[in-house]
């Protein structure tokens, strides 16, 4: 997979259909989206709008029924399972609503996990994982297991895990959804710092207040994408 296209992120006419029993449901109806490196984008939409499906496609967990999707120079449309996994490993850092730490592993091991699958040497792995945990402010929680960490701390571990592979794209699905307001805004501050450092972030949310933290907001309603007005007061 070489960088065949000199494009950072481009979606053209992305259509996703699901077979629901006899009927065919069109979840995404021709999504077009361009993102530049270093952008901070929110996808805002109510539940059932197709935003999870869009996130799955952006995150290379799923493939569109039709349309063209280029991420960091690679055309995603005709990749197989294994190649998709490699793209995810290299290009995408996922942050889920629940941090989804593996309960048996400590913070350090959880952060190391993506590097294990990427085949990074143990010493290098430990160095990078520690670096990321320090970066998200968990220097003193490195060897704590998930049940010893608060929700906000777990979400920070998840962010460190997403960052540790140095991905092209940080993809967050309702990153504050399970957190109280105070902790949520701390996480938002962290996102802002990461964006200031040059990370490209796409955040999927149904909450306008959360969405407004991003520099750019797009609305998704009923499978169609519309650009919201520029948000200047981030």
């Amino acid at each position: 997979m070489s960088n065949d296209y000199e494009v950072f992120f481009r979606m053209r006419d992305i259509i996703k259909k699901y077979q629901l029993g006899e009927e065919e449901a069109t979840i995404l109806k021709g999504i077009c989206l361009d993102i530049e490196e270093g952008e901070y984008l929110s996808v805002l939409g109510p539940s059932g709008s197709g935003k999870s499906t869009l996130m799955n496609i952006i995150g290379c967990l799923d493939k569109p029924t039709s349309g063209e999707y280029i991420l960091h120079g690679s055309l995603i449309d005709d990749l197989d399972e294994k190649e998709l996994a490699q793209i995810r490993s290299r290009e995408v850092g996922f942050i889920f609503q629940n941090s989804q730490m593996l309960p048996k592993l400590d913070a350090m091991k959880n952060v190391e996990l993506p590097l294990i699958y990427a085949g990074v040497r143990p010493r290098e792995r430990a160095r990078r994982a520690e670096e990321m945990l320090v970066k998200v402010g968990l220097a003193d929680r490195i060897h704590h297991k998930p049940n010893m960490l608060s929700g906000g701390q777990q979400q920070r571990v998840a962010i460190a895990r997403a960052l540790v592979t140095r991905p092209t794209l940080l993809l967050a699905d309702e990153p504050t959804g399970a957190l109280d307001q105070h902790t949520g805004s701390q996480i938002m501050d962290l996102f802002q710092e990461l964006n200031d450092d040059g990370h490209t972030i796409i955040m999927i949310t149904h909450d306008l207040k959360v969405a407004r933290h991003a520099r750019r907001v797009v609305n998704i309603i009923d499978g169609e994408l519309t650009e919201a007005e520029e948000v200047t007061f981030a």
């Binding site: 294994k82 996994a85 995810r88 490993s89 996922f94 989804q100 996990l113 993506p114 699958y117 997403a162």
Partner: peptide, 16 residues
């Protein structure tokens, strides 16, 4: 299932 899904999301190949 969730653990497997998570591992796949963060880049584990099917063979791994």
């Amino acid at each position: 299932t969730v653990e497997i899904g998570l591992k796949k999301a963060i880049g584990a190949e099917p063979s791994q």
